[in-house]
Amino acid sequence: MRKLVHLAVLCLLVLSLGCLGLPQSAIASPMSSADTFSLNNLTLPSSTALIARSSNSNEAQSPQSNAADAKLSTEFGKKTDLNNTPLRKFRKYRGFYPTLASKIVNYAKDEGDYKSVEDVLKIPGLSERQKKLLQDQIDQKSFTVTPRSEVHNAGDDRINPGVY
């Protein structure tokens, strides 16, 4: 029995040394000139790239890669759009998230798009405090209204657009 215990301890010691590793020294050997790598002899496969340019000179100065970028470069990118902004973006306004923001998003979904920023005050069931919060943001020109964009409302779910 005693030999078996000694053998088990020896196996554990060898295993632990194998797992942890032993220090080894590296020795560099001189290389011949044939072994060295030279960028002068390097040949890479060529590929063609397609670059599209707009015929409009204004667009050439600030190219837009897609519809989402085009919309973000407008007022939509600077303000909160009542017709297109997801629910979570209203968190930056104190007192809006989640209750008032849900009312704003759901009203647009149920009743149709907002025509003007002031239409947000027509949401039924708003408390006086909520109306004051909305009016303060309208006065600060924090909101905008643009036509509903499929690019920013993919899946028609502004409450959970899948952005985490």
Rank of each mutant, 00 (worst) to 15 (best):
K109C: 02
S62E: 14
D113M: 03
V105F: 00
L87F: 06
S55G: 15
L82M: 02
F76Y: 08
E111N: 07
L100A: 05
R53S: 11
A60K: 12
K115W: 03
Y114S: 05
L100K: 00
Y114M: 06
D69C: 11
A108N: 10
R88I: 12
A68V: 12
V117E: 00
F90N: 00
G95C: 04
T74K: 05
S62F: 14
E75R: 00
A67E: 15
S55N: 13
T80H: 07
P98Q: 13
T99V: 09
D81W: 03
A68T: 12
K92E: 14
S102G: 07
S62P: 11
P86I: 01
E118H: 11
E111T: 09
N84Y: 05
L72H: 05
G77P: 02
R91A: 12
Y114K: 00
K89S: 12
A101V: 03
R94G: 09
K115L: 13
V117I: 06
N66M: 02
S73K: 15
F96W: 09
D119W: 00
A101R: 03
G77I: 02
L82C: 05
D81N: 06
K115Q: 13
K92F: 04
A70T: 13
L82K: 02
N84W: 00
K78P: 05
R94A: 07
S54P: 01
L72Y: 08
N56W: 10
L100V: 02
L87Y: 00
E118I: 09
V105N: 00
S57E: 10
N58Y: 12
K103S: 09
G77M: 02
N66G: 03
P86A: 10
